[in-house]
Structures are given as structure tokens and as C-alpha cells.
Simulated assay, not measured.
Amino acid sequence: MSARIGAIFAIVLLLAVAASLLVPWVDLAALWREDGAVALDVLVELRLPRAALALTYGAMLGAAGAAVQALFANPLASPDLTGTTSGAALGAVVTAYLFGFSAPLALSAGSVAGALAALGLLLALAGPRAETATLLLAGLAISALAGALTTLALALAPSPFAFYDAYDWLMGSLIDRSLSQLAFAAGPAIFVIALLARLARPLDSLALGEDVAQSLGHDIARLRLEIVCLTALGVGACVAICGAIGFIGLVAPIFARRLTRGHPGRAILPAAMIGALLLIAADLMTRLTPLGRTLPIGVVTALLGAPFFLWLVAHMRWRVRD
């Protein structure tokens, strides 16, 4: 991605963050009037964590999706389609029953453990260079298993309040998150995105084949382990705070590769920027619906992402036929 395109994306992201802070409209002029404390509280306590979490979570999903797609050499690989998001959600729900949803450190640990287990199982079942059919079947099986166990956990909820808290959280939400919760998601996400970006060169060489990558001095086994662990850490930390949000990790890398001329490793940072923009846009859509209430952001991303996924599968099938 050229510096010019990167600058354009940065400007668009800043505008999107500004819109996230101000929509629905916050009267900035009120900051200098007697009621300024109310407007300031809305911006700092409500809007700022929400916008920052959308930026962080979207960037993390985009970067993780690009890394997983590069690892499997498959454009259909993503954290939600490989079972990583479902595994993280399962780990967080089980942990929440033990420690409550107000324990972000425990939630993060449980969510990361679930994501790591799901992605490790996928790697063992499908292999590192899985074909599309194998990847989809293994990912769907792991997602179904994690979903069934999550439903079982909901059925065995210790109280009705725990059930409704877990159900609302599973649909994904950026609402009513605090700055302290933001730190639990943003810290690991920034750390993971930075480390994934450093793996751009070995991931690009891996696209040429394992033999080529090894001849260039890259340790393939170590690279796989790093991708699995980093993806689980980043996605798990974000899922623990905001719940499961799907399809951003699938869509963002596909657009990012068009900006990097098909280089999977170089698509990590552009995918992070596109993922952040997509999630901020989806969050804005949840507030501007004509239904008179805020929709769960996970529902919005699924409604937008599922048709794109179906189109992508059909497009790949047509290309195979041709």
C-alpha cells in the first residue's frame, strides 16, 4: 500500500472516529456553558470508550484475518470461520460463570484459552495449507462444537441474570464499556498487531511455498506457532470485553490484498485499518436504525458479512469452473 493511500485511510479513520464521538449529535458548544459537565461526561465516559473499542477491535480482527488467511493460503480463512471467535466466546462465558462479567482479567484469560484451543484444533485437523473445502468443514465443525457448548453453558446458567448477561454479551456490543475495560482490549490488540506486522516478510515468502520460505531462512513451524498464539491472544482479549463480532476478519483482508497486489503479509496493516473503519461504520449503523433502538453490533456485521461470504464462495466456484 502506497503512502498516499495510507494517508487517505488515516484521514478517513479520523473522520469516522469523529463521527462516532458526535453521533447522535453532541453539542460541543455546551462544553463552554454551564451544562458543559454533562456533554463532557457523554464524550469521555460513553462515546470515547465506544469509539476506541470499535477502532481497536476492528483493527485486531482485520490483522488477525489477514494473518490467518496468509497462514492457510486461503481467502476464506478468518477468526470467525475458523472457530477462533466461537472458541473465545465459549471460554469467556465459562469464565464469566465462575468469576462474573466484571472480572476483565479472568475473562481475557478464559477467552484467549478458548481461542487458542479452537485455532490449535483447526491447525491439527485441516493442516497449515488447507484446501477450501477442508478448511470450511473443519472450521464449521469447530464453530458448531463451540456453539453447542456455549448453548449448553447458557442452559446451565447459575441464575436468570447470568443467562441474560451472557446472551446479550454473545451478540456483541460496544455499549457501556469503561476506559479500564478498553485498556484490557487495546493493550493486547496493539501488541499483537505490531508483532503480526513484523511477520509480513515470512508470510509473503510462505505464499511461494514452504520450501521457498525455508530456503530463505524462515522457521515455518515457529511461524505457525506465532500466528496461532498471537491471533488467539488478540481476538480473545477483544472478545472478552465486547463479545463475539463476526465477518470483519473475513472482509477486511480481502480488500486489503487488492491494495498490496496480492501480497498476504503486506496486507496485515491495511487490513487492520480497513477492519477498524468497517467496525466503526457498523457501530454507527446500530445507532441510526429507524427501529428506535440500538441493534447489537454483532447482528449488523453478520447481516452485512454473510451475503458477502456467500458471494465470495460463489465467485470462487465460478473461477474454478472457468
Rank of each mutant, 00 (worst) to 15 (best):
Y167I: 00
T151P: 03
V38A: 11
T150C: 09
G91W: 08
A52Q: 05
A115Y: 01
L137A: 13
S108I: 10
P79Y: 01
L40V: 03
P75C: 12
L53R: 02
G120W: 02
A148H: 10
P104S: 07
A141G: 15
L149I: 06
A59R: 08
S143T: 15
L122I: 13
A117K: 00
Y164N: 12
L98M: 10
A63Y: 04
L81W: 03
G87K: 05
T85A: 14
G62L: 11
V42W: 04
S102F: 11
G91Y: 06
V93R: 02
S86P: 04
L137R: 00
A124G: 00
V93W: 02
A67L: 08
A144P: 07
S78F: 01
E131K: 15
L119N: 00
L122Y: 14
D41W: 05
A70C: 07
F99H: 14
L40H: 14
F72M: 11
W169K: 06
T95N: 04
A66T: 01
A153Y: 02
V42T: 15
D168W: 14
A66L: 04
L76N: 11
A66N: 08
M60Q: 12
G147Q: 07
L105V: 10
R47H: 10
L71P: 05
G87L: 08
G110Y: 10
Y97W: 14
A155T: 13
L46Y: 11
L48G: 01
L122A: 13
S102T: 13
S86H: 03
S108N: 10
L61F: 13
S108Q: 15
A51C: 00
Y57K: 04
L55P: 02
A126P: 14
L105T: 09
L76F: 12
A118R: 12
Y57A: 14
S86L: 05
L105G: 07
L145H: 05
A157Y: 09
G83N: 13
A39I: 01
L107P: 03
T82L: 02
L55N: 10
E45A: 13
A77E: 05
V44F: 12
A51S: 06
L48S: 06
L156P: 02
V112Y: 00
S159D: 09
A106R: 05
A144W: 06
T95M: 15
A96R: 12
R50F: 03
D80C: 11
G127S: 12
T151L: 11
G110R: 14
A166P: 13
S108V: 15
L116V: 00
D80W: 02
A106M: 13
A162C: 04
A51N: 12
A124V: 10
A138T: 10
P79I: 00
S111Q: 12
A126V: 14
L71S: 04
T151E: 13
L43Y: 03
V94L: 15
A141N: 08
V44K: 09
A124D: 02
A67E: 01
A117L: 15
G127L: 12
L154H: 08
A77K: 02
G62R: 03
